[in-house]
Simulated assay, not measured.
Amino acid sequence: MTGKFEIYSDAADKFRWRLKAGNGEIVAQSQGYGSKDAAKKGISSVQSNAASAPVVDLTEAS
């Protein structure tokens, strides 16, 4: 099974998204957004930027 994004509303009536792996575990979640459309734009941003984002290891001395 493939991963999926879920949009939901929190206790403060903000829209949030979470990314679930194929096994159902949450691997990422968002900040609260004022509208569902803004949450969808946040998902689109992750989808378009994550594949090319560098990994920066802050635990290693430079």
Rank of each mutant, 00 (worst) to 15 (best):
Q29M: 07
N23C: 02
I43V: 13
A12Y: 03
T59R: 07
S62D: 09
Q47K: 15
A11C: 04
F15D: 02
W17Y: 12
N23T: 07
G22M: 12
F5M: 02
A39V: 11
S45D: 03
S48N: 06
N23G: 06
G34N: 03
D37T: 10
K36R: 15
Y8P: 01
S48K: 09
A61Y: 03
Q47L: 12
S44W: 03
Q29H: 09
K4I: 05
I26D: 02
V55I: 13
L58K: 08
K40P: 14
T2Q: 14
G32M: 01
T2A: 14
G24F: 05
S45R: 11
A51K: 14
A11H: 10
A28R: 15
E60P: 10
G22W: 13
A11G: 03
A53D: 04
R16T: 07
A21I: 11
S35A: 09
K40R: 15
V55T: 06
K20P: 03
R18V: 08
G42D: 10
V55P: 13
I26K: 04
K36E: 09
V55Q: 05
S44Y: 05
K14V: 01
S48F: 01
F5E: 02
F15K: 00
V56D: 03
S9H: 08
G42F: 14
V55C: 08
A51N: 15
Y8W: 07
K40F: 12
M1A: 09
L58V: 13
Y33L: 01
G32D: 01
A53C: 06
N49Y: 05
S30T: 10
D57Q: 11
S9W: 11
G32W: 07
F15A: 01
T2L: 12
F15Q: 00
A39Y: 08
A51W: 00
S48H: 04
A12H: 06
Q29I: 02
D37A: 10
S44A: 09
E6I: 13
N23Y: 02
S44Q: 07
N49K: 15
Q47T: 08
R16S: 11
K36W: 07
A11S: 12
S35D: 00
D10Y: 15
Q31N: 10
G34W: 04
D10P: 02
G32Q: 04
S45K: 11
S48D: 11
I43C: 07
E25A: 05
F15Y: 14
Q31T: 07
I43Q: 05
D13I: 09
S30R: 07
V56N: 04
A53E: 09
D13A: 09
D13Q: 12
D10R: 13
Q29F: 07
R16F: 10
N23D: 12
E25D: 09
M1W: 10
A50N: 03
D37C: 06
A12K: 13
L58Y: 01
N49E: 13
S35L: 00
V27D: 11
Q29V: 05
S9V: 08
Y33S: 02
I7D: 02
G32P: 01
L58N: 08
A21C: 08
I7V: 15
A39I: 15
F5N: 01
I43W: 12
